[in-house]
């Protein structure tokens, strides 16, 4: 995205696009990724609740998945998952 010139800046540098930080993909920070074993998942949603990125979402089938564009690989979801349905796997 081209940087704005001074003339193009909004008055007072107000940001009018809520949530526009999502343009930036923090997934590149990751050195390990969570992998779900749906067979063990009890659909409790702990992974969703505890994700600091807010990037774990429940699919229509009720199972959870992380958006890899944003997941930083912190491992909280795997650590907190009671039935141990999530494993952290090294990025290749």
């Amino acid at each position: 995205m081209a940087l704005k010139t001074w003339k193009e800046l909004p008055i007072g540098c107000v940001v009018f696009e809520p949530g526009s930080a999502s343009e930036y993909h923090t997934g590149s920070w990751r050195s390990q990724r969570p992998v779900w074993d749906d067979a063990k998942c009890i659909k409790c949603g702990i992974c969703y609740v505890f994700c600091p990125e807010g990037c774990v979402q429940q699919g229509e089938d009720g199972f959870f998945k992380a958006d890899m564009n944003y997941c930083k690989g912190c491992g909280i979801c795997a650590h907190e998952c009671w039935p141990r349905a999530i494993k952290m796997v090294e990025e290749g």
Partner: peptide, 25 residues
């Protein structure tokens, strides 16, 4: 006002700027 802190149009005021924008600001 040019913008207001109101939920009907949620804006961010006083955002943080790095060197890429500071001179222009």
């Amino acid at each position: 006002p040019h913008a207001t802190l109101h939920p009907s149009n949620p804006v961010t005021m006083g955002a943080f700027s790095m060197s890429d924008y500071f001179t222009e600001i």
